[in-house]
Design a protein around this nucleic acid. Structure first.
Length: 823
DNA sequence: AGCACGCCGACT
DNA sequence: GTCGGCGTGCTC
């Protein structure tokens, strides 16, 4: 019988536009499955892992397909549901499948080969006078290091193009190259002690006992410890653990192995720590929580998505716990999504108390191996695996078998939207699609819902359940304004503090309560400025001023990372008197030391929480009341429950309100309400002081009244008038090029092309607030589409226009970034 | 993404 | 004149 040659279309996790077709060797053809990883060669030598998308027998007509090198997995590691989800995402967010795969797969399941340069075995017999100086340098390098990769050689020579040199050396037979394929995921193993099989009967065991009984009490102790731990000789005991139990060392267990009392087996173990403590019973729900739970379940009977709108401190988590419990009992999985910075040990411990080892955490601060482990655990179906995944937006990509429920806590948070790199997806919106594929329900929770979600609820697309009283019936905090403008007039401002806020702080500290000060990072960055002419050092690659970092005493660009020593002289007027301007959290911390010398202050921002545990340490210290005043950026607004916070201060509300963005009011309200919610939780009503130049601003009034709904109504009118979401969908196009003229011209051309069909839906092009990043000039075009038109048609048209544009010879190097539903 | 090819400036 | 930088196109 003629054997039919099979082909696979594979997804390579890089940004290439199409799937590629490879040929399957006959020896592998019966093992190949959709969703498996295969190793393929791309280009001259480079190897990649790719995911099988389709197995077929269509012979490619235009090229000779390469063979796949090998199959990596016995069974698929990507499920068919995931593949469908990836395809939806690539199409909706206008990116390639490869880009989705690249984001979706944990990096240790992806592998790419690296070219290594080695000396040829008999190179010493050759005449090295035929080598050029540079080649000789490489030879010496290789003699020292044994093998080197291309980057190392480039560094050695301090030049970029090294490939020609390597080629010449290969021709001269001095070196060879090998493709080093690294499997980056290795299961972790440990040694386990088992009773030696020869002792598996009572008599022999007794014999062994009597042999060691008198002469080796320590060995006896270890044997007894083992028998206590593993009475059936089945499970084994970790060698390290056993040694610890009896305060013995490796020598001791080795002796017992030599005597054939024990045997050692190496076993795969998980990297994920196990929850050891007793599980707690779910908390009894309050009347209000009970009602909310019932209403959510009723809503799920008719609708797939429900919005839980509950004020800060209303106890949404307990309601989630009940729903999670019920879903798990049905044998279905639960995904609990939270913004990255809200992913605290506090929350995880709380969930582990109820669900123990059923909780799996997926976190960007986990290392690559741990992430691969969670992925593979999720894939395996079995009782011992985590069934409740808690994680940030990327946990959406885990290989779930049967999702029953997705919870999106702090639904309004815009960190659910990924900006760079593509796919620029919104985890909240994508989760609705994923849930549909699994037949699962989505519960979105927030004290300050996004305008979009609230509107969806109002339009009856989502169910909505309200919780309007705080747990234990504590009142919402009292919000007061401190008028910066009038205090400036009366000259009662002390640096960045109004006398009103200082008084309130003093009172709070005297009562032994804690304070949180919130300061928005943007616009507050400390600058280095000439005191004579006002000149400020700028980034050489981006149109932004450089930010001063006191700790390391240098100036830094937040966009491209450019770093310099603070200049000693002004570049404009030559003056030598440059000084610090503006204030960051550091400055606030210093001022606090002046006003409250006895209070202990700490700050929490990106700088102080960079390391894996720093964040937790600050939170811990604050919980233990080792810190009186916590100064922080956005981070302090997220899901932290502290018991003794009497006062929250917002240092400058105007910076939030004046942000040039159609969402600035919505966001300002959310931020202020969320941070205010940190005040006075368990015991008494807390206080909030909002410092502002505009105490009569309507948004600030709404914050003071805790009135989300009237903010929503007002905001909705604006959104309709100015054609913004939720009434219109937005697609943002950013054109990038190193030549400003080309960006300008091409963006005008693209605007015109788009307008042919989309007409007044095309806004711009315009130069963004920051017009140049990393030496690339930027121009934006915004497209506003009515809800009722097909976004797919519009997207196809946009793609066609862009393809047309970049085919123009002048616009070859033009990059167009597409952002669907930008936030 | 990463690599090869080809064009063009600045150094021998 | 050539080396090395960088833009451009392609990968099954």
């Amino acid at each position: 019988m003629e054997r039919e040659t099979k082909f696979v279309d594979v997804i390579i996790p890089i940004a290439i536009p199409n799937l590629l077709t490879y040929r399957i060797p006959h020896s592998m053809s019966e093992f190949i499955r959709v969703g498996q990883r295969v190793v393929v060669q791309l280009g001259r030598s480079k190897m990649y892992t790719a995911i099988v998308n389709e197995v077929h027998a269509r012979v490619p007509q235009k090229y000779e397909a390469k063979y796949i090198e090998s199959i990596l997995d016995e069974s698929p590691i990507v499920t068919s549901t995931q593949l469908a989800f990836w395809k939806w995402m690539a199409s909706y967010y206008m990116c390639t499948l490869g880009e989705v795969a690249s984001t979706a797969l944990p990096s240790s399941l992806k592998l790419a080969s690296e070219t290594k340069i080695l000396l040829q075995e008999h190179y010493r017999e050759l005449d090295d006078s035929i080598l050029t100086d540079k080649e000789f340098l490489i030879l010496e390098g290789l003699e020292i290091h044994g093998e080197m990769n291309l980057v190392e050689i480039a560094e050695l020579l301090d030049q970029k193009a090294v490939m020609p040199l390597i080629k010449s050396m290969i021709d001269k037979r001095f070196v060879i190259t090998v493709e080093d394929l690294k499997l980056r995921y290795k299961p972790k193993t440990a040694e386990f002690v088992y009773l030696h099989p020869s002792l598996h009967n009572e008599e022999k065991l007794q014999e062994a006992f009597s042999q060691i009984e008198n002469r080796a009490p320590k060995q006896l102790e270890m044997l007894l410890a083992y028998l206590r731990e593993d009475p059936d000789y089945q499970l084994g005991v970790s060698k390290v653990k056993l040694q610890k139990m009896v305060n013995g060392d490796a020598q001791l267990s080795k002796k017992l192995v030599e005597k054939e009392v024990f045997e050692i087996r190496v076993r795969e173990i998980g990297r994920l720590s196990e929850y050891q403590l007793e599980l707690e019973k779910d908390k009894e729900l309050s009347e209000d929580q009970e009602r909310a739970l019932k209403e959510i379940k009723q809503s799920f009977e008719k609708k797939d998505v429900c919005l839980l709108y509950g004020v800060t401190g209303s106890g949404k988590t307990e309601v989630y716990v009940s729903l999670i419990r019920e879903t798990l009992e049905r044998g279905e999985e639960v995904l609990y999504l939270i913004p990255e910075i809200a992913l605290t040990t506090q929350l995880i411990k709380r969930l582990q108390k109820y669900f123990g080892n059923q909780v799996g955490v997926f976190h960007s601060k986990f290392n690559v191996q741990e992430r691969a482990e969670i992925w593979l655990n999720t894939l395996k179906s079995g009782d011992s695996q985590s069934k409740l995944i808690v994680g940030a937006r990327s946990s959406l990509f885990l290989p779930f078998n049967k999702l029953g429920l997705i919870i999106i806590d702090e639904e309004h948070e815009n960190s659910f939207k990924q900006y760079d790199p593509a796919p620029r997806y919104h985890a909240r919106d994508s989760s609705v699609v994923l849930a549909k594929m699994h037949g699962a329900k989505v519960l979105m929770g927030s004290a300050t819902p996004s305008i979009e979600s609230f509107w969806n609820a109002e339009k009856d697309r989502y169910g909505i359940v309200e919780m309007s009283s705080r747990y234990g019936n504590i009142l919402l905090p009292e919000v007061q304004c401190a008028d910066i403008r009038s205090e400036l007039k009366r000259k009662t401002m002390k640096n960045h503090f109004t006398s009103f806020l200082l008084e309130q702080m003093d009172e709070t500290l005297k009562k032994g309560q804690q304070i949180i000060l919130f300061q928005n990072r943007r616009g507050y960055s400390p600058l280095w400025q000439c005191s004579t002419c006002g000149w400020v050092p700028h980034c050489t690659r981006c149109d932004v001023s450089l930010t001063y970092h006191k700790r390391v005493h240098h100036l830094n660009c937040h966009y491209c990372g450019y770093t310099i020593e603070p200049p000693k002289t002004c570049e404009v007027c030559g003056n030598h008197d440059l000084k610090l301007l503006g204030f960051g959290t550091e400055k606030i911390e210093e001022e606090l030391a002046l006003h409250f010398p006895d209070a202990k202050a700490a700050r929490m921002d990106l700088d102080t929480t960079r390391s894996k545990h720093a964040y937790q340490e600050i939170i811990g210290a604050f919980e233990e009341k080792e810190i009186d005043i916590l100064v922080g950026t956005q981070m302090v607004t997220k899901g932290l429950d502290f018991e003794h916070v009497g006062l929250v201060g917002i240092l400058n509300a105007d910076l939030l309100l004046n942000f040039p963005d159609f969402r600035s009011f919505e966001r300002a309200f959310q931020l202020m309400t969320q941070v205010a919610g940190r005040a006075g939780r368990k015991h008494e009503r807390g206080k909030v002081v909002v410092q502002t130049y505009t105490p009569d601003h309507w948004v600030i009034r709404k914050v003071m009244d805790h009135d989300f709904e009237s903010l929503y109504k007002q905001e909705l009118i604006e959104r309709l008038n100015f054609q913004y979401p939720p009434f219109f969908r937005l697609i943002k196009l950013t054109l990038k090029h190193k030549d400003e003229k080309i960006v300008r011209a091409s963006s005008i051309d693209l605007g015109q092309a788009l307008r042919l069909k989309l007409e007044e839906r095309v806004i711009g092009p315009e130069t963004p607030y920051i017009g140049r990043i990393n030496n690339q000039y930027l121009r934006n075009i915004m497209i506003k589409i009515e809800r009722n038109t097909s976004p797919a048609t519009v997207k196809d048209y946009i793609k066609a226009c862009i393809a047309q544009l970049v085919s123009h010879p002048d616009y070859k190097a033009l990059r167009v970034v597409l952002d669907v539903d930008p936030v």
